[in-house]
């Protein structure tokens, strides 16, 4: 779906490259995440993939099209939700969606159904100026889906959402994946990356340092131990036990038989641990 080789980019007069030779590919039907701290080059990469920044070096193919030869027809089949919601504030949610829908030649989705899916049905006829941040984010997401895009770009899709709407948004994104669409997400939220993405790329200082599935990364960088908390009389005790041949481990058997076990955790790394370990950076 997307193939990027040796991508370099520098902003205006900056002599230093913001992107230093990125290489990656995104397969059809996958949810791909760009992870990294602010200013690492995630948004820049996405802006190149959607044709906003065009004076890059290297090759970028999206859907078999060399982006250097991009025409406006390219946008018939992609959907984009920017990080800052950008909508006509003096117009209602429905008016905004109707307006943007009319630019597409192909069949568009029913705006009312989209609004219902993100829980904005009651606000359909409210002006966007009266929307909260979270509502704007959800409406912005609807807009990106109007043209039934096969390829969807989401920049920080969960920023400003409360836990309930965060869950809802995750479900909606996975529903798009289930329709066979390819989704490209930039985020600095590890939880989002973990639950949604098939593969993630770590971007730091304009370079991709690692690409793999979140599960694989967590296992690879974890330790094969389980941590067990149990009661020994009045005191709470902790033991770390190797995971291999756990069933025949004496300590573990002893705890199982003679003590009241409170928690048991495998010691795989969190995505954040992997990030810190491989890049030497924190995500903030």
């Amino acid at each position: 779906m997307i193939r990027v080789t040796k991508l370099h980019f520098a902003y205006g007069s900056n002599s230093k490259d913001t992107l230093n030779g990125l290489n990656f590919h995104i397969d059809s039907g996958e949810v791909f995440g760009f992870l990294g701290p602010s200013g690492a080059g995630k948004s820049t990469t996405q802006k190149i993939l959607i044709g906003i920044l065009n004076n890059y070096r290297g090759t970028v193919f999206v859907n078999g099209l060399d982006l250097q030869k991009l025409t406006s027809d390219f946008y018939e089949s992609i959907g984009v939700a920017f990080e800052t919601p950008n909508l006509y504030t003096k117009f209602t949610a429905l008016e905004n969606l109707d307006f943007f829908a009319q630019f597409y030649a192909g069949e568009t989705r029913n705006p009312n159904e989209l609004l219902e899916a993100v829980g904005l049905k009651d606000a359909a006829n409210t002006r966007v100026s009266d929307f909260s941040k979270g509502m704007k984010v959800r409406l912005n997401f609807c807009r990106s889906l109007l043209n039934n895009p096969k390829l969807i770009f989401l920049d920080e899709p969960t920023a400003g959402l409360d836990p309930v709407n965060l869950r809802k948004m995750e479900t909606l994104i996975l529903a798009e994946k289930a329709r066979g669409n390819t989704i490209c997400i930039t985020t600095h939220d590890m939880h989002v990356a973990d639950t949604l993405c098939d593969r993630v790329a770590f971007i730091v200082d304009g370079e991709v340092s690692l690409i793999d599935s979140p599960r694989q990364l967590k296992l690879q960088h974890g330790e094969r131990f389980v941590d067990v908390e149990y009661r020994d009389g009045d005191s709470l005790k902790t033991k770390s036990i190797p995971m291999d041949k756990l069933g025949s481990n004496d300590t573990f058997q002893d705890i199982l038989k003679n003590h009241y076990m409170e928690t048991i955790h495998s010691r795989e790394a969190s995505l954040e641990d992997v990030f810190v370990k491989t890049t030497g950076r924190s995500l903030q």
Binding site: I50, G51, I52, S72, D73, Y75, E76, I78, V80, F82, T84, N86, L87, Y88, T89, F100, F103, Y104, A105, R143, N147
Partner: peptide, 14 residues
Amino acid sequence: GQNLTQSLFVTPLR
């Protein structure tokens, strides 16, 4: 300022 131009130019609008 409201980034509307950005969203307009990721549609087929010329």
